[in-house]
Amino acid sequence: MATDAALRRLLRLHRTEIAVAVDSAFPLLHALADHDVVPEDKFQETLHLKEKEGCPQAFHALLSWLLTQDSTAILDFWRVLFKDYNLERYGRLQPILDSFPKDVDLSQPRKGRKPPAVPKALVPPPRLPTKRKASEEARAAAPAALTPRGTASPGSQLKAKPPKKPESSAEQQRLPLGNGIQTMSASVQRAVAMSSGDVPGARGAVEGILIQQVFESGGSKKCIQVGGEFYTPSKFEDSGSGKNKARSSSGPKPLVRAKGAQGAAPGGGEARLGQQGSVPAPLALPSDPQLHQKNEDECAVCRDGGELICCDGCPRAFHLACLSPPLREIPSGTWRCSSCLQATVQEVQPRAEEPRPQEPPVETPLPPGLRSAGEEVRGPPGEPLAGMDTTLVYKHLPAPPSAAPLPGLDSSALHPLLCVGPEGQQNLAPGARCGVCGDGTDVLRCTHCAAAFHWRCHFPAGTSRPGTGLRCRSCSGDVTPAPVEGVLAPSPARLAPGPAKDDTASHEPALH
């Protein structure tokens, strides 16, 4: 009773807030009518008042009428009001819900409408889902798969039609296919003929059939049928067999079959498995989609049935006599038709004709302190090069084509190399640097090759510096006499390219 009084008091307290929050009759008014909170006449009256005075006034009048009803109607109103779709449509209802007392429970059932309790003993237990329907569909599909699609060729003596089998029958139906081979029951999904010589313990000319048996419980189990008994694959494991010639990621696949039913060829011909030897223990289905393919039931050349050999690369099948050149017997292992072999060759040939990528240039590290003349020119003028003790990398590039010797140069053309002071002394051009340390401070000019250098860098042994005729380390061993002091540049003949010694390969005349 306390809860009923509290709900009535809360409705009177929030009546105006609810009326202002509800700006549309749908969905709240319609939901109240659906849950029998508002009768039909009051529903029509509220809609009429909404058209006349507006939605807030109409709902305020409806809530005032609701306060005169019993506690069950008020409880049902609060339940409908706080439904998710009403809270989404009328956003101003959320503060009312947040301020609702926590001790007021809106989930209690309506009085007088409590459903009768059902004894637990009368409640049926839930049924577990079964796979009976899938099993029945598999039974119905198996006879259809064994139905012949056409008439065999005159040369083929193997013609068999499976008798119709009602689904209610649980007995196995067997077809006489000759040579002791028996087909599987209607619940078998796949059958492959297997030679009895590969099964340990088999006697006589009995041949087993590799099947997948579907049981009534819905589970499946792969086994071997020899005669009327089934054997699990673990009985046929043979770890010492060295003649297993397995197909790549293979499961067994029928390579020879008669049109209309699988079996042995007439005249004692023995149908073979995809792999010879003992049956392997793992009978998992292969991951290669080509091995799941269903080959055609007629020859791809003459479009006739009979004894066919199936290609492992495509769905086509052929007569042995229709092949070019014809085959006398079934080859062992994987067999592919000429079209598949030709496609494989065409895929391999473009790969062989692809040009080989060019090898990157060989990189040879230079000892610290040495650099090529090109690196000396590329440096920024007026700045010493940083990191001189790091190992430089010199790339061996292809030799350029031989060019004509340089033409003779006048001494005026070499004027930018040297600057003559007032006393006739050779001065260095701006930006000249030593080729060893890279520093341009207090550098000297070689009178023979006009290269800038430090005496301490080229002659670290402490050799005394002569007063005139300074030469760098590369030119100090040259027998050519030094030019007379005061000459602007060496003779043009000295600039012609010539053979250089091994220790002077990195010091070429550089223009500054």
Rank of each mutant, 00 (worst) to 15 (best):
D4I: 02
D4P: 01
A5Y: 04
A6M: 04
L7D: 00
R8F: 01
R9W: 05
R12H: 01
L13C: 03
L13S: 01
L13D: 00
T16C: 03
I18K: 03
I18Q: 01
D23Q: 00
D23Y: 01
A25V: 10
A25K: 04
L28E: 00
A31Y: 13
H35Q: 00
V37A: 01
V38A: 00
V38G: 00
P39L: 01
H48Q: 15
L49V: 04
K52I: 07
K52Y: 02
E53Y: 01
G54S: 00
G54I: 04
Q57W: 00
A58W: 02
A58E: 01
H60R: 02
H60L: 01
H60G: 02
A61G: 03
L63K: 00
L63C: 01
L67N: 03
Q69I: 00
Q69A: 02
D70T: 04
S71R: 03
T72H: 14
T72K: 15
A73W: 00
I74T: 00
W78A: 02
F82V: 02
F82C: 00
F82G: 04
Y85K: 00
N86V: 14
Y90F: 01
G91K: 00
R92W: 02
R92H: 03
L93R: 02
I96M: 00
L97I: 00
L97F: 14
D98L: 06
S99G: 04
V104D: 00
V104T: 03
Q108T: 14
K111H: 05
K111R: 07
G112R: 03
G112I: 11
R113M: 05
R113K: 12
K114I: 10
P116W: 12
A121K: 13
P126Y: 01
P129F: 04
A134S: 11
S135D: 15
E136D: 05
E137N: 02
R139F: 15
A144P: 15
A144H: 02
L146N: 03
P148K: 01
P148C: 14
T151K: 08
S153G: 13
G155A: 14
S156I: 14
L158C: 05
L158G: 14
K164L: 12
P166K: 01
P166W: 00
P166H: 15
S168V: 07
S169R: 06
A170P: 09
Q172M: 15
R174T: 05
P176A: 14
L177Q: 06
G178S: 13
Q182S: 11
M184W: 03
M184Q: 06
S185C: 08
A186R: 06
A186G: 05
A186N: 04
Q189H: 08
V192Q: 07
V192I: 12
M194N: 06
S196E: 11
G197A: 09
D198M: 10
P200K: 05
G204A: 14
G204W: 02
A205R: 03
V206Q: 02
V206D: 04
E207A: 01
G208Y: 01
G208E: 04
I209V: 06
Q213K: 10
Q213L: 02
F215L: 07
K221W: 03
C223Q: 04
I224S: 05
G228Y: 04
E229K: 05
T232A: 09
T232R: 12
P233N: 15
D238Q: 09
K243N: 11
K243F: 07
A246Q: 01
A246G: 06
R247P: 03
S248D: 13
S250H: 09
P252F: 09
P252V: 14
V256D: 06
A258R: 01
K259M: 13
K259W: 12
Q262T: 07
P266N: 09
G267H: 14
G268P: 08
G268W: 15
A271N: 11
A271R: 06
